[in-house]
Nucleic acid binder design. Structure first.
Length: 463
RNA sequence: GGCGGCGUGGCCGAGUGGUUAGGCAGGGGCCUGCAAAGCCCCGUACUCCGGUUCGAAUCCGGACGCCGCCUCCA
């Protein structure tokens, strides 16, 4: 049984499923108004890992994650870049998927776009207006949060204390500063859709309710996203579902921030590093390993230093893959445990790692166990127990694959000149001509190779 | 003001009331012609002050410091 933290009560509990054997999860996706940043990377990695693990365990996962393609920021961006919102969206959505591919984040089963659900949103808003749950003011339609008795459930505070601390000015026409826009009236030149309550565009909080319920149905299992979405975004989504008399997600969970120094990385602070930049300057797997090494709800610092640290750790994993000629796993296909044979200590390792991951996705413990196993595998191989070593190595590879981390064992293509140097070096070594052997090694190093000796002679690879 | 989180060895980062987290870096050793890769050993940490306890980094209380949410944000 998989246990997961629930943001509503702050407790870890069994992930109960609507349909046994099937997990329906909705992950709030990005607004494509700019390059994806490290914070996006974290949430996509965290929930990709969750999805992969559930799948590995044999659950049938339906993973839905939206693309917000209409929003104030997108409009602002189109003015800034002097091109249509459609072009802005196309550009940044393409960047988004490219970044996801580089991180090895598997594509969602469904990636709905907000603009494809406008009619459904209009229908919902109309329903709220009819029931006096929403009201019209000069700039649009607003949701009356006082109509939801347990508003504040996710915030962990009753409506009154939320209202007391509200930073938004209550001086406008809203009944409460916490009331939020369901529909924003179009200003000249802005993209808009016709609606009975005036041409305009949907507010952010409405799209996810409509899309999640539309694609996953009532009472879907898990709704997650970054911690910053917990309130007010998720609170407001839920409020709408409740007001509409629909059963919303049963389980909520949120991942922690990416920190920049002591501050949270965020759009408003403008302190973000793009995933595009990260991919250009490091092995994208390093970020995944970094994410795996900390708990998903803890804040993590993603800096050149921590990324480099992870890259060095990765080198040890890759060395294992080379040593045992392990196939690269993960990538687009989600691994499933039943495709492997778990016997002896491999089974024990799977049990231990599985227990860790089933317990609120304790990836740091899982990674620690896998590194222990790595040492054991190398150690066994060092003393000649190759069958045990290989068995462990295969299991380690499979389990990292289950978490979406692929170990690289691929051999680099060796050009004729380098191959010749290798041959000559092996010859020199056989003749114990160390001076010549070292000279040839230096030549290979100059050509950019890492040179290692093995029982079968000189091995070269790219760093 | 309300609500929530955090403070661990050089760095990153886990953690259960009492026996090793793990990674990176560093030191020593083994292996190696020398390296590289690999293996083994080492630091004996837990903001401070009280308390509970045979025993607390881990539970309780307090202090200090930091961060976040109550606008937009993954």
């Amino acid at each position: 049984m998989i246990r997961l933290f629930d943001s509503v009560d702050g407790k870890v509990r069994d992930l109960t499923l609507r349909e046994p054997g099937h997990v329906s999860m909705y992950v709030c996706g990005p607004t494509v108004d700019n390059l994806p940043h490290l914070g996006h990377g974290r949430f996509t990695l965290v929930w990709d890992v969750a999805r992969r693990w559930f799948t590995f365990r044999g659950l049938d996962v339906t993973y839905v994650s939206n693309i917000t393609d209409i929003d104030d920021k997108i409009i602002a961006r189109s003015l800034e870049e002097d091109r249509s919102t459609g072009e802005v969206v196309a550009t940044y959505e393409a960047q988004w998927w490219e970044a996801m591919d580089r991180l090895g984040v598997a594509r969602p089963d469904e990636a709905p776009h907000a603009t494809d659900y406008v009619p459904e949103m209009i229908e919902l808003i109309s329903e709220f207006l009819e029931n006096d749950i929403a009201y019209v003011i000069s700039d649009g339609v607003y949701f009356d949060v006082s109509r939801v008795p347990d508003y504040g459930l996710l915030a962990g505070q009753p409506l009154e204390s939320l209202r007391a601390g509200a930073r938004v000015e209550a001086s406008d026409e809203k009944r409460s500063p916490l009331d939020f826009a369901l529909w924003k009236n179009a200003k000249p030149g802005e993209p808009s859709w016709p609606a009975p309550f005036g041409d305009g565009r949907p507010g952010w909080h409405t799209e996810c309710v409509v899309m999640s319920l539309g694609l996953l149905g009532e009472g879907f299992d898990l709704h997650c996203g970054g911690l910053d979405l917990k309130f007010p975004h998720h609170e407001n989504e839920r409020a709408q579902a409740v007001a509409a008399g629909r059963v919303f997600s049963v389980h909520w969970d949120h991942n922690g921030w990416v920190m920049v120094g002591k501050e949270k990385m965020s759009k408003s602070l403008g302190n973000f590093t793009s995933l595009t930049h990260l991919a250009e300057t490091s092995d994208p797997r390093a970020y995944r390993l970094l994410v795996l090494r900390s708990h998903y709800r803890s804040p993590i610092g993603v800096t050149p230093a921590t990324i480099a640290d992870a890259e060095r750790a990765l080198a040890r994993l890759d060395a294992l893959a080379r040593r045992f000629k392990l196939p690269a796993l993960a990538g687009d296909t989600l691994e499933v445990a039943t495709n492997y044979r778990w016997v002896g200590d491999a089974e024990a390792l799977f049990d231990e790692v599985g227990e860790a991951l089933d317990n609120d996705l304790d990836t740091p413990l899982a990674v620690a166990l896998l590194f222990d196993a790595l040492a054991a595998a190398n150690s066994a191989a060092d003393v000649g127990d190759l069958s045990y070593a290989k068995q462990q190595a295969v299991a380690i590879n499979a389990l990292f694959g289950a978490l979406g981390l692929s170990l690289h064992s691929k051999e680099d293509r060796v050009d004729a000149i380098s191959a010749d140097l290798v041959t000559r070096r092996d010859q020199a070594r056989a003749e114990k001509d160390w001076a010549e052997a070292d000279r040839l090694r230096n030549e290979l190093v100059t050509l950019g190779w890492v040179v290692e000796d093995s029982s079968t002679g000189t091995l070269i690879r790219r760093p």
